[in-house]
Simulated assay, not measured.
Amino acid sequence: MGTVTALYRYPVKSMLGEAVIAVAVTESGFSGDRGYAVLDETGAVGSAKHPRKWGPLLRCRSRLDDSGAVRVVLPDGTALPVEDPELDERLSKLLGRQVFLSAAVPEHNRLERAVPEYEGGVPDAVRESASVDAAGENITTGSVAPGTFFDFGQVHLVTTASLARMREVYPAGDFDARRFRPNLVVDTDAGPGFPEDAWPGSRLRVGEALFRVVVPTPRCVIPTLGHDELPPDPGIMRAVARDHRIPVFDLGRLSCLGVYLNVLEAGTVRVGDTLTLQKAA
Rank of each mutant, 00 (worst) to 15 (best):
M1S: 07
V4E: 01
Y8F: 13
Y8G: 01
Y10W: 05
I21T: 14
A24M: 02
T26P: 01
S28D: 04
S28Q: 08
G29H: 07
G32D: 01
A37C: 08
D40V: 04
E41L: 13
G43A: 11
S47G: 06
A48K: 05
L57V: 07
C60K: 07
R61W: 02
G68T: 08
A69R: 15
V72S: 11
P75V: 08
D76S: 13
L80C: 13
P81S: 10
D84P: 03
Q98H: 14
Q98P: 09
V99H: 02
V99M: 06
S102K: 03
V105S: 05
P106M: 07
R110Q: 12
E112W: 11
E112V: 14
R113H: 12
R113T: 15
Y118K: 00
G120R: 06
G120P: 06
G121Q: 14
V122E: 10
D124S: 05
V126G: 00
V144E: 01
G147H: 07
D151S: 10
F152L: 12
Q154Y: 09
V158R: 04
V158K: 04
A161Y: 11
S162I: 05
R167I: 08
V169H: 12
V169D: 11
P171A: 13
A172S: 09
A172M: 03
A172V: 03
F175P: 05
R181T: 12
P182I: 09
L184N: 15
V185F: 12
D187P: 12
D187L: 15
D189P: 00
A190K: 03
E196T: 10
A198E: 14
V206S: 10
G207K: 11
G207Y: 12
F211E: 08
F211K: 11
V213I: 09
T217W: 08
L225F: 00
H227T: 07
P231I: 04
P232G: 03
D243A: 15
R245G: 13
R245V: 02
V248I: 15
G252R: 01
R253F: 10
L261V: 15
N262F: 06
V263S: 09
E265G: 07
R270N: 13
V271G: 07
D273H: 01
D273K: 10
T274C: 02
L277F: 02
A280N: 11
